Simulated scan of single mutants.
Amino acid sequence: MSRATKPKPKRLLAIDTSASPGFAVIEYGGSKPASLIYTDAFPTDTSLSDAERYEVVRSATALICYKYGTATPFDVVVREHFIKGGSKRGTQLVFGGWAAVDMALRAFGYTIDSDNEIPPTTVKKAVGISGKATKAEVEQGVRKALNLPDDYVFPNNKGGDASDAAAIGIAYLKREGAI
C-alpha cells in the first residue's frame, strides 16, 4: 500500500512593474489556502536619473528573487500587462522598469511568459467589483481573497503598487483555478 503524499505548496511572484514597482509573493496549493508571504513597493525618487531609478528596480527585484525564490523557487512569475501609458514619459518609465525587472529575473533563472501578463481590468475584476475598481476597492479585495485582517496595511503602498502586485497574483491564481 502506498502512502499518499500531501501536495506541496507552490510559490508565485507577482510584479506591478514600473519605475516604482510593487511585489507580492503568494504561496498557494497544497493543503492550505493561498497566503501572502511578502509584499512591498519600492517607490523611486523622481530626482534620480532614469538609470539610477532602474538600478533600484533591478536591485529590488534581485533581492526578492534571492530572499524569496532561492530556497523555495517560484513556480511562476506574473505581471500586469501594459501596452501604453497616459503619456510618452509614463510609457518610457514603465518599459524601463520592465527591462530592469527582466534583467534581475534572468540572473536568477526566471522569465515572464507573455501568457502570464494579466490585463489591468482582469486584475481589478478579480479582486474588486468591476474592471474600474478604485485603489481602496483593490486593497480590500486583496485582503478578502488572502484572508488578511481588514486593517492590514500594505507596505509603501502610497501609489497602490504593493496591493496591486498582490491583486495581479490573485488574478492569475483565479484564472488558473488555483483559488
Rank of each mutant, 00 (worst) to 15 (best):
R89S: 09
R53M: 12
N147W: 12
V77P: 08
I170S: 01
S87N: 15
D45C: 12
P7E: 02
K135S: 10
D164T: 11
S2Y: 10
C65K: 12
S49P: 09
R143T: 09
K32L: 01
V138F: 06
P43F: 04
A107D: 11
Q92V: 14
R89H: 07
A51R: 03
A62S: 11
I64W: 03
I179T: 07
P9A: 00
A167C: 08
S163W: 06
S2Q: 14
G90F: 10
A14T: 11
Y28W: 12
L93G: 04
T91Q: 13
K144F: 05
L12R: 02
I112M: 05
M1Y: 10
K174H: 01
R53Y: 12
V25Q: 02
D50Y: 03
G90V: 13
S35D: 02
I83T: 06
S87F: 14
A167P: 07
V142A: 05
T70K: 03
V142M: 09
V56N: 05
Y54T: 09
D151N: 14
I129S: 15
G22D: 06
K125V: 03
A171T: 01
A167S: 11
V127K: 03
F74D: 00
S130F: 11
E117V: 07
A34C: 13
D16G: 03
V78A: 13
P119T: 01
A41P: 02
N147C: 15
T111E: 11
G169C: 06
N147K: 10
F95L: 02
R143S: 06
G128F: 00
I129E: 11
S2T: 15
G109P: 01
D50S: 07
D115M: 14
K67F: 05
L48K: 15
N116H: 05
V127F: 00
V57C: 13
A41K: 04
Y110Q: 09
D161H: 07
R53D: 11
G22I: 06
V25C: 04
D50E: 07
Q92S: 15
